[in-house]
Nucleic acid binder design. Sequence first.
DNA 1: CGCGACGTTGATTTGCCTCAACGATTGTGG
DNA 2: CCACAATCGTTGAGGCAAATCAACGTCGCG
Lengths: 191, 191
Amino acid sequence: MIQQLLNHIGKSCSIQPDNVSLIEPFFEHKVYKKKELLITEGQRCFEKYFIIKGCVQLYYLKQNGTDQTIDFAIENWWTSDFTAFLQGGIAQFSIRAIEDTEVLSISADRQCQLLKQVPELNAYFHQVFQRAYAASQMRIRYLFEFSKEELYLHFLEQFPAFTQRVPQYLLASFLGFTPEYLSELRKKFLS
Amino acid sequence: MIQQLLNHIGKSCSIQPDNVSLIEPFFEHKVYKKKELLITEGQRCFEKYFIIKGCVQLYYLKQNGTDQTIDFAIENWWTSDFTAFLQGGIAQFSIRAIEDTEVLSISADRQCQLLKQVPELNAYFHQVFQRAYAASQMRIRYLFEFSKEELYLHFLEQFPAFTQRVPQYLLASFLGFTPEYLSELRKKFLS
DNA sequence: CGCGACGTTGATTTGCCTCAACGATTGTGG
DNA sequence: CCACAATCGTTGAGGCAAATCAACGTCGCG
């Protein structure tokens, strides 16, 4: 469990074996059922989450009452409302488990202590966030570059496995259009 | 010059005084005239840039031949095509100076060496990218949440200074719509 | 079985783009 | 210092992608 996180860390930086046992107690193991919320828009958010198993959705509520999904996170990804996490402030997003999900969570405070004790981990998080930011730049590019139809086809191509994993209406919410329009597209490209 | 970067670093982590002189030679000071390119879509990109002075635009070329701006960067921001930077690959974006601009640049290789010698800097970059990623999450939110009209008004409100600094057509390109439509909006809200 | 979640279909509307043409402003070489 | 070109901004007509709204299948679950 913690081992999975350690493996992931090990890819970016090497930690002294005697630090391994040091790291574990900083994290809290949490389990969520499908549809449960990890954090809620409008409430304080102190924590970030490393997904051990499952899948979650980062989203906010639109004026019309439907969700807009910003991002999905699956095994070995970090997720949170990072603006709130950084400032210890009010979350602008919610995070919901869309499958039964296990995470390791850590609060900003405890992360701060952890990094003092095991500063090598900064190299790990540097990597994690540089990659996340790079992916985000590309995401923004695609949002501008592609029509909704192209966004859909591009997603199918890049993440065919994901299509099995999430229901249609979540896909639509992630890509930023209505389930009705997705339905139209599926009819057009039925295979 | 290097001092400006050191100041910025100093806000996130403390470096040993004897490391200060160590850091400088890893960076290259470069100067660009308005409209010059720092990196070019389709060519290799090895470097990232810390803006000392000026303003640059990260963008790509759309099919219709116009630019789509992904991001601006000004004093004390890092910019690059990070996907290419991380993989030493082909850039999918160009970066253009939109004012006369001075930067400190560092290649991925040299950054790697630097981080070996001054590992404290990982804490700095961890901060930088976590913040950048947080901002990117919010950017994506706004792209979904707001109509073009709202995007425009929201930008005016959040970055009034910027409006003086960049021409209208760049603003339109950043917000993702046509100069013609921006013109319509300006007429509507002329103050 | 009956209810709620999910998906589909079609009619109508609209936000924004495209294209084309025309002022205004800037800058550059003669 | 002017002339001419290029850059930048505006205006209007016409068109389309995608949203909205409403209604109807369909499946899984209590």
